[in-house]
Design a protein around this nucleic acid. Structure first.
Lengths: 355, 355
DNA sequence: TAGCTTCTGGAAAGCGCTTGCCAAGGAAAG
DNA sequence: CTTTCCTTGGCAAGCGCTTTCCAGAAGCTA
């Protein structure tokens, strides 16, 4: 029958119970190095705090100290393995430094991204990490700038993964170059007819990967037919639906490039359901190398990106002493061919369609 | 050449610029319904705030209002799809209510779990959600109680997924019952010789699943050989290594039960690498039905759990009006047989070993 | 015009903590 | 036995907001 709402225990109560002043109690609890407190008092405060199960109000502390100990991560979707792994790396280093992480999922809604950034600013987060790709959208860019600029000039740190139109410290996977390498690898396997499954073109990452791929083909004198490119959501479902569309169009191709692994997972599913054998009938490749894809049926060929490490690196960038120069670290994806791609065979069926 | 650290814009600056008092500015910005402010002043305040890119200091607000708008999620590991999906569901409902989420990964370290809970308490989080299974460990239980009790009596809400030794509102997957059902399904396929790959027994979830499985076998008069049970980490690597151990022991069996999907993924990898065909040589089943396993090679049979929904439900529980009675919602896992399990064949190789 | 009620804006008291500054007491120095 | 310095506790001033209470201005009723 206890009442609901006794308030939280305050420092004052701890101090009173220990028979010392607020100031002394605070100094004991913070281990303020420059000040000495007699051992006896120290003990009294400590045991008083323990007895009362005291936990300092972090908000009051933040206010008084004018510095918080939280960092914010903004992702497109935590349940997307790409972000989950980057977040994991980032959280590890944050935790090591005793920082608390606030995590947001924008579900790829640019307005929500702006809103979250604002919230994080309100929280006086020490750093804001933009984990997802930026959007190519003037309104978004401006709105974000309006948040980021005052935040940074008030001492906030910002760092990003992938390209954004804000000049912040960043870890940049070489999406364009990686996609080009993959294209070359596929060309090397003898493929000449390609299809690509791409995501929302407003995402910079998507654009870069697509361009890199297409340009590398062009360089080799291989053209990418317009109807061989399907655009859909940057998700498993998107990959599934996009593949169905490709099937419907009966695109002639021997290799399919999905701009990210998650879409490739959906593609593989659609292909299997429609009797298209991978890699016998069609080679499939993704991008990112999220840890699960090596276990797919068949194991997916992809561009490997050290996701957790990327997370660790952005967080480190964000937490490092600010320097005058902008810091950019490039990450080179590495071609990782597994069983979803094969050398093209002379007589393989060339028109993609239901078996 | 701007200096680093102009502080953040404060309400006072906004008020001054608008030529009104702090109180008025606050009222305008909070849309305090019960008070009217002349439209002219309202506009002045609003445009002043906009011009200064003002964002209220959330800590000051929390302090003044004595109520915060954050909730805390504590998971074992965000990058584990099981948690990622539960977290996703939970975050969705939190976001709908305008709450900010703080997310922690304990990496299955019980001390870290206690520490985070304390931090969340310091943040005066409105609710703390324990997403991972509890540990069977006296010290842990006591420490958590010491955090949770004062937190709750100060009005904090706590809810959990899976079993814990704290009587809090909870969403409880029927792990025992589910594992038993799975055992029966496997028996129904003719299997009589089993192996099981289990996680750290200090995790209540692990214990329940193992017991449910074993008991159901016993009930059917089938014994589970002691050396057919291997224990390892609750992770992909754990599943991989555990399977290697099983292989080393040359356990005679036709079906392998992994206490969760993540371990099953590792198991599948180890089996493939060692030439054991699934399901021809060995049937494999997991538990959880994380979204990816239907895309594995072969698609994994498992006990389906509506992960995102579970997340939504705990969050709803935590955010609902507290009631006198403890609220417990049971979730029944459903048997989902895919291609990794098959009817046992007369002449299948019975000793698990490298091909 | 007097007497009320209703509106609106502002002053000020916190919310729970940190920290600069002061002062009392003891130790060290002369 | 002074004088000076150091140690250590406490007072009180914030940190940036919200909200209660007050008071002057208006609007109404008679």
């Amino acid at each position: 029958m206890t009442r609901t709402g006794g308030p939280h225990v305050t420092l004052e109560q701890v101090a009173r119970r220990a028979g010392v002043s607020l100031a002394t109690a605070s100094r004991v609890l913070n281990g303020d190095g420059s000040r000495h407190v007699r051992d006896e008092l120290k003990d009294r405060v400590l045991s008083s705090a323990r007895a009362l199960h005291y936990v300092a109000n972090a908000h009051a502390q933040t206010l008084a100290r004018a510095t918080s100990s939280t960092v914010g991560l903004v992702t497109h979707d935590v349940s997307d393995p790409y972000f989950a792994h980057i977040a994991r790396g980032a959280m590890r280093v944050a935790t090591e430094q005793g920082l608390l992480v606030m995590l947001a999922s924008t579900f790829r809604d640019s307005e929500r991204e702006v809103a979250y950034t604002s919230v994080l600013r309100a929280q006086r987060a020490r750093a804001i990490l933009l984990l997802g790709s930026g959007f190519e959208d003037r309104a978004y860019t401006n709105a974000m700038r309006a948040e980021l600029t005052p935040y940074r000039s008030a001492g906030g740190r910002v760092a990003a993964v992938s390209h954004h139109d804000f000049s912040v410290d960043a870890v940049l996977p070489d999406n364009r170059g990686g996609a080009a390498e993959l294209a070359r690898a596929l060309l090397g396997l003898g493929h000449r007819r390609f299809a690509v499954l791409t995501g929302p073109p407003r995402l910079t990452t998507v654009k870069h990967r697509f361009q890199g791929f297409r340009d590398a083909l062009a360089e080799a004198g291989v053209e990418l037919a317009e109807d061989a490119v399907v655009e859909n959501e940057f998700s498993q479902t998107g990959g599934y639906d996009g593949t169905l569309e490709l099937l419907r169009r009966k695109v002639r191709c021997t290799a399919l490039f999905c701009v990210n692994d998650v879409m490739a997972v959906g593609a593989l599913e659609a292909l299997r359901e429609n009797g298209v054998r991978v890699p016998d009938d069609l080679s499939v490749a993704g991008f990112d190398d999220i840890p699960i894809v090596r276990h797919l049926n068949p194991p997916l060929s992809t561009m490997h990106l050290p996701l957790e490490e990327i997370g660790e690196r952005v967080m480190s960038l964000a937490l490092a002493e600010p320097t005058r120069r902008r810091h950019v670290e490039t990450v080179t994806p590495v071609v990782t061919l597994r069983e979803s791609t094969a050398r093209v065979r002379r007589r393989s069926r060339q028109a993609l369609s239901r078996a």
